[in-house]
Every structure is written in structure tokens, then in C-alpha cells.
Design a protein around this nucleic acid. Structure first.
Lengths: 398, 398
DNA sequence: CTCCTTTTGTTCGTACTGCGAGCATAATGG
DNA sequence: CCATTATGCTCGCAGTACGAACAAAAGGAG
């Protein structure tokens, strides 16, 4: 088939008829959205702009209804108080959607990341039509309220995504579901683990890491490498399926068709199998049951937790060797696993590192955003799309 | 220790006192260097510049001794012939060095990638001092000839690199060797597999791939993921050590200190061990001996080749799942391995893919540049350094 | 050979962005 | 109330890219 995944923008090089040279304004908007800037004074100190340019830029952003300026309250220091840069009350919004296993959520997010509205629901039937209808209804409710201000719909899905199509979401039992029907808007879609990793890098535990690896154990294991704020989603958007690296027993067949996948050794199914020789169809619930049993002293469960923590640690070590992240963040079951068996994990992790990495072992931290990561990440990719030359041009022409 | 690896440039954002707005010129220079542009007419067609801007830009590049313009010979089509854009005869150069296992090479490269001069030598003693002295002598010979035109020295080393220090190069038996002594110039250093992957992406078999994975089997296995022309070298420059992913038998200890490294199952040591239960200290030579024996009918050797090809294929499948490259290029022993046992490799490769990747299996191709990749890649990183705002400013101020 | 067409190079005036300098403004502190 | 400090605002200037108009260099048709 060949699923080409064009990068969100390409950010039009100089040329093109009557180029709007808005590089400077875009840069300011992005810094503002990222929360690295809050006042006009910081435009001069952090970005090195002259005060004249800061004025010019903010004036244009103001008249384009992108930012709102407000006198800052005196801060006690000397000198004239600076001006706060706030999201414009009539500015552009992103509608972010998170479709999870048992719930869905729709959020309307403004520049800077604040959530203006939120709708959630439970998934009773996992039929794609049923879920999509519920979500579409919630989205259209928000669109009625916020109107043209909403620029894109950005959806997080627990599965493999290609363009706006969900190629496969095994635990929703979806195959080839098109998300572009959710709204009459530009639609973006992404994998939940990818997006939660992106969120950790932008607004979570990895904000200071130039290269961050995020790993999420849920049903199977997924994740993403984020380099300078950009998720490495690969050529077709399928990147980050670290659970299907063959770190495991080559004799064990994985549902994906391959053998020896890491997946099969680290999620709730592995815990249930190792603890009680159980086959589990609900890996998340199974994981919590085994972890709870281990906490209350069940020796078989404790051994299973230990063994899975070691399998996880060993794989993380290998990934650090290969990808050399500054930091690893984990979420989902991985968080509990690390809390339950920190030493087993750590021993296996360090033992799996090449000598070079042992001199300064990259820290492994629990995610800061937890389950919210996916929808926050979706909002981030949404704003990545809005905060481009074409996105702003479209906004001004609305 | 924490080896921070600052990105080559950061390409100075707008601001800064009296900003030289040379974005346009830099873009043209980079396209020119990449070979995507050869004439002034292409500046308008490919980059979308106006003819007026093309004139302005080339005039400035000409007076800065960066490009040379020359009338193009009539091409048979109608219209006034365009102007060729050539590297300036007194333009900036990069001195690229490749230190390999048994040889070293020094090359002087001009804008566009043409090699103007080349010195090579054999490595008799692997003592760092001895090798560095020989290389330094060759480099200083070139510097005498080319003078101030040489802007940076860029070195490829078969080992782990951090800044200008070789942290470890096991088959040269180097530890903590500083390369900045090689010349009184800005020195850059990179891993040989990383740089040959970069070279394949820029000028080799992967020029059309937005996301390319390169794998080189030599002594152990190394490689690199290149995304939009940028090598993913990680936080400290140690990225790409794919050989130390635990794809192998967890009982087998690797020299790196970890267990079950892929490395131990795919290089010449693995071939010698599997074919003849031999311990080999010269993996490259051993690989060639086993491959030759397999070609001439030795059944034990053939089985070994087959088994290693399968181990390699399985790992490549896993990496494709994780990184989702558009294309994989291989070099070193991997090329011979694929040629010797294409079906074993391919079967294992496909069997290792998740369902999603099987719909359009990323091709695995032999590298186009072969052993030259490392030095070409070194020259590329050298020009990445020269073709920045600070690099050009320094050039103009020379 | 001459004229027309095609393509590109060159000149000129214009638009946009960012800068520095100088002045105006709003806070703190004596 | 004035000095100090930090910031906002106005103004003139420089650099880059553009479109339009014109000049130049090729091929093609008569």
C-alpha cells in the first residue's frame, strides 16, 4: 500500500508569490504556546528581539486575534511593568479527542494549552460506529459552542495510525477505521503512546530533555522517541512500536504475527501467565490484579512482578544503547511495575547497558501527565498544525 | 559524567544585534551542496525564488567567494541559456578523515562533495599516538597546500564518540582518545557507522528516503537512523548502537558487559563460532573466510551463514517495527551476508514484522557508497558545520 | 538573414521585517 | 519631588524578497 505520512507542514521555504515573512511571529507564537514566554519583556530577554521588534510583532499578533495584551501587575521590582501576553479571548482553538479502551474524552484547548471545555463518555460497545457517533456528537456540540475558532480536530487512538485512518486498534477490535468523518475540519490522528510521549516532552516530565524516550505499558507496550520536541513517528506514522522488538523468548508467538516480541513479556498478560498460568483477555485489569496480589504478599504474584520488571528493565537498557535518550519516562502499567519492583528493574536496566552508558545512566521517571498525556499530546499536534504559515494564513482569512 | 552533545548549530533565531539575515543564501548553499540545484534557473523553479532574488543571492555568494558562476552551454532548447552555479575555485573546504581498522584516509572536499585531494595510509601499530601522528602529518600536509580555505576537520572513527573524544574504539583498543589534537582547526568527530548512514541518506542509496535506517556489520553491528537528513545520534552522541539490543541468547555475555547482544550473533565472530566452533579475534577476516567457505560448498559454513542471516533478518524486522524507516541500507559484512543467503534473511525479516509493516515491506538495499561512506559522511557533517550562519560569517571574516 | 518566440539575466521601485536611538511612561526608592 | 530603572513607543534606516519592465541570448519559421 505504502502509507506516506507527509510531515505536518514543510514550513514553506522563502520563495512563493508575495511571501508573508511571518517567521518571527510564528517563532513568538510557538514560544508562547510552549509556555517559555509570558511577557513582552521576555521577548527581548529570551528571544533576543529588540523592543521595537517586540512591539511590531505583538501588535500584529493582537490585530490578528492571536494574542491579547494586558498590563502586568507591578512585581515589586523597579521600572515600568511589562505587558502580559495572553491567548486572545477570540483566538484559535484545537479540539482534542482521546479514544481509550473504556472511555473517550473531547477537550477544547486554547493557545498555551489551557483546556476551555471538556466532554467525556464511557465506551459500552466497542463497535467503531457506535464510538465514533458518540464522539462526533460531543465534537459537534463543542463546534456549535466555539464555532470557527476551532481550527483542527486532533485524535488520539490506542492503535496504529496512518494519516487519518486507524489501521489497527487491536483492543478496540478496530481495523481500517477512518477518523476524518468525526468533523468537517482538518483531522489529525495519532497513536496514544506516541502522543503521551510528545506531551511529556512538551509539558511533562521530559521538558528539559532534548532526546526523550517514552514507554507506556497498557495492552502491550508502545512509546516514542522525541527529539527536540518532534516525535520520531517514522516514514508511515508507525514508529514507536517498541513492544515488537524481539527481546523475548523466540518460541512465543505474538498476536502481531512475529515471535518473541517484548510485548508478550511485559504487560498484564505476561503477569497473569507468570503468576497463575492464566490467559487473560483484559491485560490492564490482569496487571492490576497481579500487582495487588503481590502487594498483599502472594509469592507467585511477587515472582511474576519481579520477572516482568526484569524483562522490562533489560529491554529499556537495550533501547538506551540504541537510541541514547537523555531521559526515559514511563506511564501506564510500567509506572506501577517500577514502583512495585524498583530494584529488579534497576538491576536489569543497568545490566543491559553498554559500558559507555553506565558512566551516566539515563534516569527513568514516572510520567508527569499520566492518562491525560494522550489528549494533551493530541492538542499539541493540533497546535503544531495551527502554528504554521499556512495555519495562520487560514486563520486570518477566516 | 554526562556528555552533552550540543547540536551543531541551533541556527541563531532572528534576534541578535544587527542580525545578518542570510537565511535565503544559506538555503541556496545547502541545496547547492546537496546537488539538488546546479543552475540559476533552478533557483526559481525548485526553490520558488523570483529571478530578482536569485540574482541578488548569487551575486552575494559570488562576492563572498562561495560560488562561481559560469555561462551554461546551450542545451538545445529555446531561450537564453542559464548560468551554472559551481563551487568557487577559492571557496571553503572541509578536511575529512576516516580512521578504519587497517587504514586511514584524509580527503579534502569542496562544496558539492567533490574530492580535491586524498592521502591514505596503513595502520601498522594501532597505538593511538602512532595513528594520530600519521594522520596529523597527512592533515598538516593538506593544510599547507589549501591553507585558510579548509574550515573544519571532520573525523570518522570506528568507536563511540562524544564531542571530539573517542570514548572507546574496541577494535583499535583505544579508550578516551582526544581527536582535537589532529589540527589547529574546529574538529568534529563521529562514529563510522553513523557517518556512513548519513552519507547514504545524503548521497547514496537512501537519498529519496525521508526516514532511512542504516546498518553496518563490521566488528559488531552499528548503524543510524537518519530522519530528513539528520542523524539521530541521541543525547550524547552514542545513538545507533543497535548491536547492543538484546535480540540474542540472554546467556551469552557480550564484551560490552551486557548479555544477549545482537552483536554476538551477527558478526564474523558469530560466523566462525557457528561454523567451526572457533573463537576469532579478527571478525572481519573470519567473516570473509566463512563466507568464502560457504560459497565453495562447506556445509558447516553454509549453515552458519544461514543462521546468521536469519538472526540478522529477525533483528532488522524488529527495528523496522520500532523505527518505521522508509528504507534500510546495509554495508560491511551485512552486504555479503545478504548476497550469500538472501532467502534466509528475507524470510526471517518478514517473519519479524508486525502485520502493519507487512502491507508494504520496507526494502533492504546494499549501500551505494560502501567503504567510502564513512569519509563522505564525515565531509557532510563538516559542511553541516560550515553552512551555518556562524560558519559563513567566519568564512567572510577570514 | 530577419523576425518571432522562448527563456533567462538585469534594473528599478516597492513592501515587509527587524534594528538602534531617542523619547515617553510607569514603577521603586530616597 | 526627583533620581533611577525597566519598559513601551516613534522614527529613520538597512536588508531581503518581490513584481514589472526591459535587455539579452538562444531556437524556429519564413
Amino acid at each position: 500500500m505504502g502509507c506516506h505520512n507527509p510531515p505536518v507542514d514543510t514550513s514553506a521555504r522563502p520563495g512563493r508569490a508575495t511571501a508573508l515573512r511571518m517567521e518571527g511571529r510564528l517563532h513568538v507564537l510557538r514560544e508562547l504556546h510552549a509556555g517559555r514566554i509570558a511577557t513582552r519583556a521576555e521577548l527581548t530577554t529570551r528571544l533576543g528581539l529588540s523592543r521595537a521588534s517586540a512591539l511590531e510583532i505583538t501588535a500584529r499578533l493582537r490585530e490578528a486575534a492571536l494574542v491579547h495584551e494586558e498590563a502586568a501587575p507591578p512585581d515589586g521590582r523597579r521600572g515600568r511593568p511589562t505587558t502580559l501576553l495572553l491567548p486572545h479571548p477570540e483566538g484559535p482553538l484545537v479540539c482534542a479527542v482521546d479514544i481509550a479502551h473504556e472511555t473517550w474524552a473531547v477537550a477544547v484547548v486554547e493557545l498555551g494549552g489551557a483546556v476551555l471545555a471538556r466532554t467525556t463518555g464511557h465506551i459500552s460497545s466497542r463497535e467503531a460506529d457506535s464510538v465514533l457517533n458518540a464522539v462526533r456528537h460531543a465534537v459537534s456540540g463543542q463546534l456549535d459552542e466555539w464555532g470557527q475558532r476551532v481550527r483542527v480536530l486532533s485524535v488520539s487512538v490506542p492503535g496504529t495510525v496512518c494519516g487519518t485512518r486507524v489501521v489497527q486498534a487491536s483492543n478496540l477490535r478496530w481495523r481500517d477505521v477512518d477518523l476524518s468523518v468525526l468533523a468537517d475540519l482538518p483531522v489529525l490522528a495519532g497513536n496514544d503512546a506516541t502522543l503521551s510521549g510528545l506531551a511529556e516532552s512538551r509539558r511533562g516530565a521530559a521538558v528539559d530533555a532534548d532526546v526523550a524516550l517514552h514507554l507506556k505499558i497498557d495492552v502491550g507496550l508502545g512509546g516514542i522517541l522525541v527529539v527536540n520536541g518532534a516525535p520520531m513517528t517514522g516514514a508511515t506514522g508507525g514508529g514507536g512500536e517498541f513492544g515488537h522488538l524481539p527481546f523475548g523468548d523466540p518460541r512465543r508467538r505474538c498476536l502481531c504475527g512475529a515471535h518473541g516480541c517484548w510485548d508478550t513479556e511485559v504487560d498484564g498478560r505476561a503477569l497473569a501467565r507468570l503468576a497463575w498460568q492464566e490467559d487473560s483477555a483484559e491485560p490492564r485489569a490482569a496487571a492490576q490484579r497481579v500487582l495487588a496480589a503481590a502487594r498483599s504478599g502472594d509469592p507467585a504474584a511477587a515472582r511474576a512482578v519481579d520477572s516482568v520488571a526484569r524483562a522490562f528493565g533489560r529491554g529499556v537498557g537495550g533501547l538506551v544503547n540504541a537510541l541514547d535518550p537523555r531521559l526515559i519516562t514511563v506511564s501506564g502499567v510500567a509506572t506501577d511495575l517500577l514502583a512495585a519492583a524498583p530494584e529488579s528493574f534497576d538491576t536489569a536496566y543497568r545490566a543491559g547497558l553498554i559500558a559507555f552508558q553506565r558512566t551516566s545512566v539515563p534516569p527513568v521517571r514516572a510520567s508527569a501527565l499520566g492518562e491525560d498525556g494522550s489528549i494533551i499530546g493530541a492538542a499539541e499536534t493540533g497546535f503544531d498544525h495551527v502554528l504554521t504559515e499556512s495555519g495562520i494564513t487560514a486563520w486570518r482569512a477566516r
